[in-house]
Amino acid sequence: MNNEELIQDYIANRLSEKEKAKVERLLETNSGFKTAFESHKDIAVAFKVSEADKLKTYFKQLEDNPVNSTSLFNKFKYVYLAVASIIAIGFFYNSFNTVSGNELFNSNFEIYPNTYQPVTRSNESSANNDAFVAYEKNDFITAERDFETLLKTSENPNIRFYYALSLLNQSKFDLALKQFEILDGKEYDYIEESLWFSALIQVKKENDIKAKEKLNQLKILKSAFKSEERKLLLQKLNNR
């Protein structure tokens, strides 16, 4: 067990008394271990803060849109309304089904930011840095070229993801999709994002079945990424 896991077990109260004493001794005598412990705690608290903010917003929204129907009358009233809405929506979609793949793509697509390698302009120029500088400047032609060069010397799936995005951001949909397909089954930092963008490309190409496959893969991963957007997109695809 490495130190990180030992610290986690200590915080989660999974250690025996003897092991706990060992951790406490390390905290007193080993400065490296203490730093690692503080760092672990900082990240845990950061997640706690971030999750608490999300929950607070969620509860506020719940209060803004309360569901107060408790009587039988109200319950049935909503059932009737729901049935009527389904019929109306069904009629609407059958009669005026005009939402194209292109429209769905445009309403869901946004340029994904550089989250892989923060650009450090004060540092010495490196090929990696140059590619991401170009990406951040929305100069996707240069970014495509630079990422392609990087991939020739070393296969890094995270770089390939940004190469695919550079293509996608220039509307080179088939080429981008090809890159996302190469990434299938690999372990890297942007698996969920790749599935989302692949689904969007398939939507644009009107390949609803393949798009739904990608969205369902995200569901299997229990991904929180774009969870609301995914749900809506899937609903729209199912209604087409």
Binding site: A46, T115, E192
Partner: peptide, 11 residues
């Protein structure tokens, strides 16, 4: 750090 968490990839 909590703010930075929103800037790393979803995965």
């Amino acid at each position: 750090l909590a703010k930075r968490l929103n800037e790393i990839s979803g995965t």
